[in-house]
Amino acid sequence: MRAQIALYVGLGLLALVAPFLGLYPVFLMKLLCFAMFACAFNLLLGFTKMLSFGHAAYFGASAYITGWLVTVQGWGTLEAILGGVAVSMLLGAVIGAIAVRRQGIYFAMITLALAQVVYFVCLQAQFTGGENGLQGIARGSLLGLLSLGDDRAMYYFVLAVFVAVFLFIRRIVHSPFGQVLKAIRANEPRAVSLGYKVDRYKLTAFVLSASLAGLAGSLKALVLGFATLSDVSQGNSGEVILMTLLGGSGTFLGPFVGANVVITLQEYLSDLAGSWVSVIIGAIFVVCVMVFRRGVVGEIQRRFGQRSD
């Protein structure tokens, strides 16, 4: 426990000074956004064993809504973020309500199919800009006080949100609700026989995960200044699964580590290897699944005998 706190503090300090270490702030922000996305996804896969194949729907929809609210409606930054999150929450509630009634592969297929519907809507609708996406989304300012146009200011804002989300997920897992989720994950029929209406708990977890994925998406839209079809595409849903499994699903730091690995590789290899990037990442994933199934953090925790909750 003490080692864990020390690790968190160390990582936190590193994150605070990172922009002064010559690292490109926009790249760091992109890292944090995808790490947040993976953490949100992990809440579902890692702590409730629900494998969603369509999490890009919430990430992307929220990115579009935030972008549209800022560029077309002229909303302020915070309001636009909240608007995006609200829409992904709603989307999560609708898709979740249908999906949680099924288990395993059927659950995965329903989330995949409905995410494809969302993708199609984003492709066809007027407000999303179709193939071009939404460009030139301004970051605006925080309540008119702090301009986020500066990369460093924006970085600390994103960092603060990420830390809040990270701690929030920890709290969810270590809450009375989290206890019930653990029980459902371990033995669903038994949880039912104790009188728990498990579908409602799963739906709540699903909506929480979708909302946080949406938050990550809307921040990403503000950071990079655009929302495109790739945000809402199947490829993005696959990537977040990969990040989570690579880092270690069911661990708190795993998705963060996985997102760092994947995004860093994409960023640096794209110059060197071009389109071979996806082949390399795919190969890493295969090795990961075959050699260390628990993911990077999962394996480390096992070696050092820590409980993986």
Binding site: R171, I172, H174, S175, P176, F177, G178, Q179, V180, K182, A183, A186, N187, R190, A191, L194, G195, Y196, R200, Y201, T204, L208, D309
Partner: peptide, 28 residues
Amino acid sequence: FPHLTVLENVRVALQRKLGTSFYFWRSE
């Protein structure tokens, strides 16, 4: 529930009547 402690196993059953089982913001 294999990954919960013996005490937590029983507590999960007791907890439903407390009415806080959806409180994801509260500490365990």
